[in-house]
Amino acid sequence: MRYESLEIFLKDSKDSLAKGPVALIFAEDEIEVASTLRHHLAQGFATVILFAPDEIDVPRGILTKVVRIRYNTRAENMLTRAVNTLIAAAPDIWFYYCYNAEYLFFPFCETRTIGDLLTFHTEERRGAMLSYVIDLYAGNLWDTPTAVSLEDAHLDRSGYYALGRNGKDGPKDRQLDFFGGLRWRYEEHVEPSRRRIDRMSLFQAKKGLELSETHLFNDEEYNTYACPWHNNITAAIGSFRTAKALKANAGSTFDIDTFMWHNSTEFKWHSQQLLSLGLIEPGQWF
């Protein structure tokens, strides 16, 4: 189904939000839009919504399986406006959001669905799940100048770290700022406010909840990495977005001949690799 605006979608097809989880995909350009949609459809989301301008082409076979909303994904604060509108429209529904050329992975996702994951997480009285945005990049930028290659994808196997997140009264309880990947290695080309790799990309909507441009919520408990009594499940988003931006930006592209370094490793497109590297964890879910 296709809608000319988010407002028209909410007016004419709000029943698409009656059951979750719902995936929100924001297409900033045409790169790997189809593979992003296929990946999240395969994970069992009840509804997948694509936000995209008219010029982005999507194969007809995929369009029959998703909701497409005409949307300016280059507008300022475009993501938070859409997400917060949907939070208000569908309280209690679990949502997930990402951009094109980003791929969600969670423990055992090859044999368990996103519904299985969130059912367990809800039983643990958690309203959000921490996900790490793990930078992916092509191994050979001469053959792949966009830095996006599913067949030649690599990631950093180490170099990740966390710092305490400070509030008005000192460090916040169970909250950390996470860093690493290309945003850390090429931080001179990345604004300080965009260097974090943590994102609360899976969350349960509720009345009054709002997402900020820093990927944090106005409910502090939603920004915690674990509950007070034990560790919880975490997820990862394999993302070409930073690599793509660094090679598209005239201020950085000529400084980067390759993203490869001694800590690069081939991405296997499997949750076990991320578990082995410590980039996701199952918590109490076995």
Results as ranks from 00 to 15, higher is better:
residue 5 S to N: 04
residue 5 S to M: 00
residue 6 L to M: 08
residue 8 I to Y: 00
residue 8 I to L: 06
residue 18 A to M: 01
residue 18 A to Y: 03
residue 19 K to E: 13
residue 34 A to H: 10
residue 38 R to C: 08
residue 38 R to K: 12
residue 39 H to F: 10
residue 40 H to Q: 03
residue 43 Q to N: 05
residue 44 G to L: 09
residue 46 A to M: 07
residue 46 A to D: 13
residue 47 T to H: 04
residue 51 F to S: 04
residue 53 P to K: 07
residue 54 D to R: 13
residue 61 G to D: 15
residue 64 T to Y: 06
residue 65 K to C: 02
residue 66 V to E: 06
residue 68 R to N: 03
residue 69 I to H: 03
residue 76 E to A: 08
residue 76 E to G: 00
residue 80 T to N: 12
residue 85 T to Q: 12
residue 87 I to P: 01
residue 89 A to S: 11
residue 89 A to G: 09
residue 91 P to M: 02
residue 95 F to Q: 13
residue 101 A to V: 07
residue 102 E to I: 04
residue 110 E to W: 03
residue 111 T to F: 12
residue 116 D to C: 05
residue 118 L to P: 12
residue 119 T to Y: 09
residue 121 H to E: 11
residue 122 T to S: 15
residue 123 E to R: 14
residue 124 E to D: 12
residue 127 G to S: 07
residue 135 D to G: 01
residue 147 A to E: 01
residue 148 V to S: 04
residue 149 S to N: 10
residue 149 S to K: 06
residue 151 E to Q: 14
residue 158 S to T: 12
residue 161 Y to N: 02
residue 162 A to E: 14
residue 165 R to W: 01
residue 167 G to N: 01
residue 169 D to G: 00
residue 171 P to T: 06
residue 171 P to Q: 09
residue 172 K to S: 03
residue 175 Q to D: 08
residue 176 L to T: 05
residue 176 L to M: 15
residue 177 D to N: 11
residue 179 F to Q: 04
residue 181 G to C: 07
residue 184 W to R: 05
residue 187 E to G: 08
residue 187 E to A: 11
residue 194 R to N: 12
residue 195 R to V: 04
residue 196 R to L: 05
residue 199 R to P: 00
residue 200 M to G: 05
residue 206 K to V: 07
residue 215 H to K: 10
residue 216 L to A: 05
residue 219 D to E: 12
residue 219 D to I: 04
residue 222 Y to W: 08
residue 222 Y to R: 05
residue 225 Y to F: 15
residue 228 P to H: 06
residue 230 H to I: 03
residue 230 H to R: 15
residue 235 A to N: 04
residue 238 G to H: 04
residue 238 G to W: 09
residue 240 F to Y: 13
residue 241 R to F: 08
residue 252 S to V: 02
residue 253 T to S: 10
residue 254 F to S: 12
residue 257 D to L: 14
residue 267 F to C: 07
residue 269 W to D: 14
residue 269 W to V: 13
residue 274 L to Y: 11
residue 277 L to V: 14
residue 278 G to S: 14
residue 280 I to A: 14
residue 280 I to Y: 10
residue 281 E to G: 15
residue 281 E to K: 15
residue 283 G to W: 06
residue 284 Q to Y: 06
